[in-house]
Design a binder for these strands. Structure first.
Length: 843
DNA sequence: AACGGTAATTTTTTT
DNA sequence: AATTACCGTT
């Protein structure tokens, strides 16, 4: 706990001004590395201490749940755990999902609504297209969803959409004139399914606050102060929600950096931040311009890059850190060599500076680019197979077997959920085929009810199926109905386990004896372990009498790969630049700096998109503290083909050459390399040579275009350079997957990769310490997750992970379900379900 | 209805 | 290259 003065002393002048100004709307432009998070956390601490605001009256909206969590714990360090705990903090989506569940009477959705993810949305759209008899080649689900999503981000509902001439014209132009009808049907189907997609969480919140003045007043009074982080990445809907909440008392602080706006593709409007003072005319502007993160060279190079963008708030980001070295532009012969050189450089710097693996990050434009680096690191002679972590890619919850289980959970919580229904009606196979399903959907559409309603009363809706099928449907209905029954009396973990067993999922998975089959089984076990952790965490937080499945689902569906906390072990980070936003590393490699990759092929059409790509590079460069590398390769494997027409990214031209050094593999790539008949040095033997200062932007285009032209006409020659003459290492590849150390899948992945022994069991238990007995048994994942319930007696003293020391005063129930009342020295009396509680017996 | 094969399509980034 | 979609066969 810190005094006000102490708080203020830890800030520089401009930070302090931003923190203490609380007289009205406030826009904080926070340059990269300028202490943005610091300002936010200290401001919240200031509001709590100086203005004595109650924690629950402060609403802080962040971009990821992880950011919220981190900020919360930092605030806890400043003002104490108890105040920080009740702060209203989270993403727009998770905060308002919670409110929508509480206010469900006014929204027309039930409180147990499902949140459809992207896959659900697309699947639904696909079905709609099919049932409307449209061609699914022209009406692609992904394109439709993005059109609809963009509309929703702008709060444009089907009626408005259908009345908007520009939109209709655009759709006609795209050969998709029926889009507005599909949008209409889509929205209707969502409602019938009691489901919202991601965008609806915002849209419905907006509508609720707009149309229900008492409710709007309730929340605008509850939230005495509203803070928004990463404001440059908010969309129109989010901006409107914030406006509705703050227009009365106008206590709002938004923080962001227009330079770092990189989510326009998702509907974010950079204008929100550029035009903030149009909505709040008396808004005061604060600028944080001192960068504490990077060297002067890095900051200067990043600034030079941004000179080429037009739309921006003028600012002067500067660094008083050491001058540092220039940015290095790496040029290699192939994408494989790029990976090799980056690895080599990492090892070199690590040795030289006695650093750690975690000092390094490899950032790329697209997830697919991680592959080369992973392969390189896994080579025995490179010896980094243990030292990297790839973020992103397919998340645990996207896997088929996990989605299947979740679909059961969803249907139990919300029987109207159409996508869940469709997913599991015939999984495991129970003889209900596509024909039957289509009949059910048809009947549901005709009567405007859910699929569940149809199979609950098939006769009422004259469902035209034969006797046998009817029986099968009834069996399915009874199965789910049984689970629903249980859900009122059973905790989420027990119910989940029951569902996995009785649904036949367990039997289905264990009948598959292949390696993958075993994998699926383990994944499901991990899911159960994750569920158990969740139940336990909820219980410890006193969140609820009993943890309901709906809470779990809500959390899970809004969770992303970004939301894993870890940073604990020492690994090189590999992620997309988008995912790296907000992070920092001593050394950063931005790889694949090539036309059509970065900037992406899709973005070169419009200047607006191109500027966003440039901002993306700005974000990438400003992640670096000391060393920053931009690398590109002359040839690259793309779409299963060797691409020899590679040009360096135009952005390399945008960085003034006085801030860069160019390093070329072998030192002769840029010269007349096809013309000499000297025996070639084998590239893999070469060290890098610093062969020239950057000779200026003009040579890039000219020189390499010429070279590419030659390669086009001389494949056999070029082939010498492109082939990888090294004996192929047979690196056993495993499926691409995100490694997220705190996700339930983490332990499994480690076991797969033979690194099991080095990993503490604690990881599976949601990051909490585990009991000695579970620590000794790697195979215990398929058993109960917490294993300390064995033999506790009244009067024993225990040490609990979170509550500390306490004495057991009472034990109720038997076996799995026994409950202990424990009197803790520090935190009072708590009830612990022995099944979930994690503690050790002291005496 | 289930399975296994071939063909087509894919890559931007994600709450 | 790898995943998915569709179609044919059993």
């Amino acid at each position: 706990m810190q005094t006000e003065q102490q708080l203020l002393n830890q800030l520089n002048d401009s930070q302090r001004e931003a923190v203490t100004y609380c007289d009205g709307p406030q826009l904080v432009i926070a340059g990269a590395g300028s202490g943005k998070t610091r300002v936010l956390t200290y401001k919240i601490a200031w509001l709590l201490q100086h203005y004595q605001l109650k924690p629950w009256s402060i609403l802080a909206l962040t971009f990821t749940n992880k950011a919220a969590k981190e900020m919360k714990s930092r605030i806890a360090g400043l003002v104490g755990e108890e105040s920080a705990r009740y702060l209203q903090m989270g993403t727009f989506h998770s905060v308002f999902a919670r409110i929508l569940r509480m206010e469900s009477q006014t929204t027309g959705y039930g409180s147990d609504f499902t949140i459809y993810d992207e896959a659900d949305s697309r699947s639904l759209l696909k079905n709609i297209v099919k049932s409307m008899g449209l061609d699914d080649k022209t009406y692609k689900p992904a394109a439709l969803h993005s059109a609809i999503s963009m509309a929703k981000n702008r709060l444009c509902m089907p009626d408005q959409y259908a009345a908007d001439g520009d939109l209709l014209q655009r759709d006609r132009h795209r050969n998709m004139p029926e889009t507005y009808k599909i949008y209409y049907a889509y929205q209707q189907r969502l409602r019938q399914a009691n489901a919202m997609d991601f965008d609806d969480l915002l849209v419905v919140t907006f509508q609720m606050l707009r149309d229900n003045e008492p409710l709007r007043r309730k929340y605008s009074e509850r939230f005495q102060y509203v803070l928004v982080d990463e404001y440059q990445d908010t969309n129109f809907a989010q901006q409107q929600i914030v406006t509705l909440l703050t227009k009365d008392n106008r206590r709002i602080c938004v923080v962001g950096d227009d330079y770092q706006s990189i989510y326009a593709f998702r509907g974010a409007k950079i204008d929100n931040i550029l035009n903030f003072n149009r909505i709040y005319e008396d808004a005061k502007l604060f600028k944080l311009e001192q960068n504490y993160r990077s060297t002067q060279q890095i900051v200067a190079a990043a600034n030079a890059l941004m000179k080429h963008n037009s739309q921006q708030i003028p600012k002067d980001v500067y660094s008083k850190n050491e001058e540092g070295e220039k940015i290095t532009i790496f040029e290699t012969i192939s994408d494989k060599r790029e990976a090799a050189m980056v690895c080599q450089e990492i090892k070199r710097i690590k040795n030289q500076e006695h650093g750690r693996w975690s000092d390094f990050a490899i950032l790329y434009r697209t997830n697919a680019q991680s592959r080369n680096f992973e392969e390189e690191m896994r080579k025995p002679e490179v010896g980094m197979g243990n030292s990297y972590r790839i973020y992103g890619g397919q998340s645990f919850y996207q896997r088929k077997e996990i989605k299947d289980v979740i679909a059961y959970f969803r249907l139990v919580v919300n029987p109207s959920d159409e996508e869940a229904f469709r997913r599991i009606i015939n999984y495991p196979t129970r003889g209900i085929g596509d024909t039957t399903l289509q009949k059910i959907i048809e009947a549901a559409q005709q009567h405007g009810v859910s699929l569940w309603e149809i199979i609950s009363h098939p006769a009422d809706y004259s469902l035209n199926v034969n006797k046998g099928t009817l029986g099968k449907l009834e069996l399915f209905r009874a199965l789910i109905a049984g689970f629903i029954e249980q859900s009122h009396t059973t905790d989420a973990y027990t119910l989940g386990t029951e569902i996995i067993e009785k649904s036949g999922i367990n039997a289905d998975l264990s009948s598959d004896h292949s390696i993958e089959g075993a994998n699926h089984m383990e994944n499901v076990d991990e899911l159960r372990a994750g569920l158990a952790s969740f139940v336990q965490a909820q219980q410890e937080d006193d969140q609820a009498e009993q943890t309901r499945l709906v809470d779990y689902l809500s959390t899970v569906s809004l969770m992303t790969d970004q939301d894993s906390d870890d940073d604990s072990d020492d690994k090189v980070t590999m992620m997309t630049i988008h995912a790296a936003k907000g992070l920092e590393f001593p050394t950063v490699f931005v790889v694949g700096m090539e036309e059509n990759i970065f900037p992406s092929m899709m973005s070169v059409g419009t200047p607006r998109e191109l500027e966003e790509e440039r901002r993306l590079l700005y974000v990438a460069i400003t992640r670096a503290e000391k060393h920053c590398y931009l690398s590109w390769a002359h040839t690259r494997w793309l779409f299963g083909k060797q691409d020899s027409f590679v040009n360096p990214s135009r952005f390399l031209n945008d960085i003034d050459s006085k801030y860069t050094n160019v390093r070329v593999e072998g030192g002769r790539l840029s010269g007349s390399r096809f013309d000499d008949d000297q025996p070639r040095r084998r590239p893999w033997d070469d060290d890098f040579e610093i062969n020239r200062p950057y000779t200026g932007a003009q040579t890039w285009g000219g020189e390499y275009r010429r070279m590419s032209g030659r390669m086009q006409n001389s494949r056999p020659v070029a082939g010498q350079f492109m082939a990888d003459p090294k004996p192929k290492q047979t690196v056993p590849r495993r499926p691409e997957q995100a490694v997220n150390p705190f996700s339930p899948s983490f332990e499994k992945q480690f076991r797969e990769s033979g690194r099991w022994k080095s990993v503490s069991r604690a990881m599976t238990n949601g990051g909490r310490a585990s009991t000695p007995q579970s620590a000794s048994s790697p195979s215990s994942t398929s058993q109960m997750p917490a294993a300390s319930s064995l033999s506790v007696k009244e009067g024993q003293v225990i040490e609990h992970q979170r509550f500390g020391r306490g004495t057991i005063v009472k034990i109720e129930g038997t076996g799995e379900n026994s409950k202990a009342t424990v009197d803790f020295d520090m935190s009072g009396t708590k009830q612990l379900l022995l099944k979930f509680a994690r503690f050790t017996v002291v005496e």
